[in-house]
Design a protein around this nucleic acid. Structure first.
Length: 282
DNA sequence: CGTTCAACCTGGGCGC
DNA sequence: TGCGCCCAGGTTGAAC
């Protein structure tokens, strides 16, 4: 579920935990294997107790809490990856059943909850050095919110794969997922099947420009919520950017730009929606 | 290098 | 009503 705009909205929505000290940690659900929680729940709880949240940062589609220990030791990062259905909440979760993490604070107030229906999300506590290795370049490319055409061109121009697949590659740019890839390609008028190596510098500029614009707008509208059991803000409200979707999920609808019929195809085992009328193959 | 598949999970929707 | 199947915002590793 959550892509860049949704994770950004969650990070902003839990901003009031900055400066707070952790006094209680619970991980109610037994975990699958390999464990999505690392270190394992017991040790995670021990290590989090007494730490203060210094800052919250979004890295691609991950929420990263910067922690400061009460006693001198290396500072740490709590990295939460919501994957398909994970939510960071400051209000009671939709069900008790899928609560994965509850963090309570010294000052009282509502706990911070990680709720994840499908349970594919991950929670990792990493020291600063490990965090840099696992969540930085070259594994994680430049943030999609400030994607530049020259970078995009350099990153993909020698590649044979399709542009849709490349946009989903977090090493190329971090934060784009299936919804926004489709919307960006539509806005730029580029056929998702186009080979990267056929894209000019000018087309990369256009893709980068539309990428920044669409993601900014989606953040302003607090992300995309599709259906009931889907993404919610930290106070459990739906986002509003789904109203602006032009092609995502619009099989057989008329293209809002040219009237042709929107098509669904599958690329890399994922649905892609596009307009065969006005998205040009390069 | 690029593509495909399976896994990790839960649950909604649809056809029969 | 119930069953079986397909689908879903993501990521990873193995096989070809």
């Amino acid at each position: 579920m959550p892509e860049l705009p949704e994770v950004e909205t969650m990070c902003r929505g839990i901003g009031d935990v900055i400066g707070q000290t952790i006094v209680s940690v619970a991980t109610p659900r037994r975990t699958r294997r390999p464990s999505p929680i690392s270190p394992p729940p017991r040790r995670l709880a021990t290590e989090l107790l007494g730490q203060r949240i210094e800052a919250i940062e979004r890295v691609g589609k991950r929420a990263v809490l910067h922690l400061r220990p009460s006693r001198a030791s290396a500072s740490a990062r709590l990295v939460i990856e919501p994957r398909m259905t994970g939510l960071l909440l400051r209000v009671p979760p939709p069900t008790e059943q899928h609560v994965r993490l509850i963090v309570e604070f010294q000052a009282g107030g509502p706990p911070l909850t990680f709720w994840d229906r499908r349970g594919l999300g991950t929670i990792r506590l990493l020291d600063a050095a490990t965090f840099a290795t696992r969540c930085g370049p070259p594994l994680i490319g430049p943030d999609a919110l400030s994607l530049r055409g020259d970078w995009l061109y350099e990153a993909i121009h020698a590649s044979q794969r399709s542009i849709k697949v490349a946009l989903l590659d977090q090493r190329v740019t971090a934060g784009i997922g299936n919804i926004y890839a489709a919307e960006i390609l539509f806005a730029a008028g580029v056929d998702p099947r186009s080979r990267c190596c056929r894209l000019s510098r000018a087309v990369c500029d256009s893709l980068a420009r539309h990428c920044r614009r669409i993601l900014q707008r989606a953040i302003r509208l607090e992300g995309s919520s599709i259906g009931d059991e889907t993404y919610r803000t930290a106070d459990n409200r739906p986002g509003r950017f789904q109203r602006c979707h032009q092609v995502y999920g619009q099989t057989d609808a008329a293209c809002p730009r040219c009237g042709a019929t929107i098509r669904r195809i599958v690329q890399a085992q994922r649905s892609t929606w596009f307009c065969p009328g006005c998205q040009r193959r390069r």
